[in-house]
């Protein structure tokens, strides 16, 4: 007990501080850059679909009545709601910075085990991240357009976290396992959450046309893929350049 307390009060070593600052700096640069690009892409490609869906969510448009409804209603123009869009930009940058922190931390572990980390290998890390965090949960809980029917949000969040955790471990095993057993475990981890099944709604109440829902899911996946490849490449690049900078300074 006494020994433990002595350890806890010891000052952090310079090497630890340097390591932490390298992780933090690389992740902040990578997350902010990838998040900003992702936010702009979302505003151009996803936001109009979302706003269109909200016309049905609010009941302003109804598509299952007797009359045909135009597929091209008047939508608010780009950046017409500045506060809303600014919040989206900030939160997208924050989200990808969060992802970048985890990604860079794992990259540092992999590098410690002798694996090469740079902008090029970062692309693969980004792809793996997209599969783990976006595609794996989205395979059963498709990106939701506003107004869709869905099960209890807490149940979905638990399933989301569990699925992402399983898929992340699977990606690591596929990348670094190197033997047939790890590939089999990875496959099981990827498939299991979908065999168990995501929480589903009891009834369908979504007022949004299926065309809009499908376009929304496709666009969300597409932008997610771009953003993750970018965050992976940037994270690898900045991790490398921050390491060189620290070496030069030492």
């Amino acid at each position: 007990m006494t020994r433990h307390m002595t350890c806890a009060t010891q000052p952090v070593s310079p090497a630890t501080k340097q390591m932490f600052s390298r992780i933090l700096t690389s992740a902040l640069f990578a997350g902010a850059a990838a998040g900003l690009i992702a936010a702009l892409l979302q505003l151009v490609f996803v936001q109009p679909v979302l706003l269109h869906a909200e016309l049905y969510e609010s009941g302003e448009l109804v598509h299952f009545g007797g009359e045909a409804v135009t597929a091209h209603p008047e939508l608010p123009g780009m950046f017409s709601e500045l506060t809303r869009d600014a919040l989206s930009v900030i939160f997208t940058m924050l989200t990808y910075t969060g992802y970048a922190l985890v990604l860079v931390a794992l990259m540092s572990v992999a590098e410690g085990q002798g694996h090469k980390i740079d902008g090029r290998t970062g692309v693969l890390w980004g792809l793996a991240g997209f599969i783990a965090v976006h595609f794996a949960p989205g395979f059963s809980l498709a990106p939701e357009v506003p107004g869709v029917a869905a099960a209890d949000v807490y149940a979905r969040q638990i399933w989301w976290f569990a699925t992402v955790a399983a898929a992340a471990v699977a990606m690591w095993l596929i990348a670094f396992g190197g033997n047939i057993i790890s590939y089999v475990i990875a496959a099981a981890l990827l498939v299991a959450p979908h065999l168990i099944g995501a929480p589903e709604p009891d009834v369908f109440t979504g007022p949004v046309p299926t065309e809009i829902g499908a376009l929304f899911a496709a666009r969300a996946f597409g932008i997610g893929l771009v953003a993750w490849v970018l965050v992976g490449a940037f994270a690898g690049y900045f991790w490398q350049s921050e390491g060189k900078r620290a070496e030069a300074a030492a």
């Binding site: 630890t16 932490f20 992780i23 924050l94 910075t97 922190l101 540092s108 410690g112 949000v153």
Partner: peptide, 27 residues
């Protein structure tokens, strides 16, 4: 070396997950 890496890695992972929980999941 392991100790040098362990603390920063854990801290970054916890910080990252905290940010994602905040931006993506807190109701």
């Amino acid at each position: 070396a392991a100790k040098t890496g362990f603390l920063p890695v854990m801290f970054a992972v916890v910080l990252g997950l905290g940010i994602i929980t905040l931006t993506g999941h807190v109701q």
